[in-house]
Amino acid sequence: MSQTKSNLQTTLEAGKFAVTAEAGPPRGAKPEVVREKAKILKGFVDACNVTDNQTSVVRMCSMAACKILQEEGLDAVMQMVCRDRNRIAAQSDILGAASLGIANLLCLSGDHQVFGDHPQAKNVFDLDSIQLLKVAKTMRDESKFAGGKDVDGPPAIFIGAVANPFADPFKIQVPRLAKKVAAGAQFIQTQCIFNLDKFEEFMKGVRDRGLDKKTYILAGVIPLRSATMAEYMAAKVAGTDIPIAYIERLKGVEKKKQKQEGIKIAVETIQKLKEVKGVRGVHIMAIEWEEAVPEIVQQAKLVRK
């Protein structure tokens, strides 16, 4: 078990503007796919998330992919959803991850299985994301399992959660963040941000309650690869808010150049997010497009040491 703090925690505690990215694990048992992604991202991010069967599509497990990232010299953030594991499995995985030196844990509810390729599956949701945060924190800080028995060697983990300023009802999003912070969220990754005005309104609520002082908020950024992708996300992906102006802007350039325009939009967004009080870093989610991350990081002048 690693007793040292994760690179992400150290970066944030040092007051540096953090950059994290996301690597979706492969739909097979090829470790080299993860290694390739690690090589692209290394040196450009403080930590890298591995998603946990995102959109309910079966992939290599987050813990294994995190371990591979760590072997490649990246600080990994293990995502854990409540959809597929009960409290016994969740706690077991937390211990397993910590024993492998995976020191960041991101707790999420998880997309409903109807979205994936096994819509017939039974879902678990024994715990919800807030309860999972509390369970993880109690294991670490009090050396107690959810059932009350002692943990013999508590997991050294930096615990995070997600927030979606664009989900409904809007008025509940700040109180919901407060619940997550109370449950143990030390850092927060937000849903991707395009609508800066609405995000700023959310952040005002966050600051008014002093939540930005109690947790590190990483603003989510997704580079858009094309106008088609932007339109799809705006229409189909739950909890995303992409102003029509961005879609028009992408449509305004020829197809070949839309990727570059998408990167430009991401860089501009990051520059604006850096000015938002309470934002302590960015989380770049370049979905199956990890090569975009180094370019965005360089253009946004966020290159790591």
Partner: peptide, 26 residues
Amino acid sequence: CSKSLLNGPCGGSKDGKCEISPETPC
């Protein structure tokens, strides 16, 4: 709640509807 969350809603709540279907109230 489609996910039986005791501390909801999840991020998939939009315009009062659940992420699983526009026919399902959140």
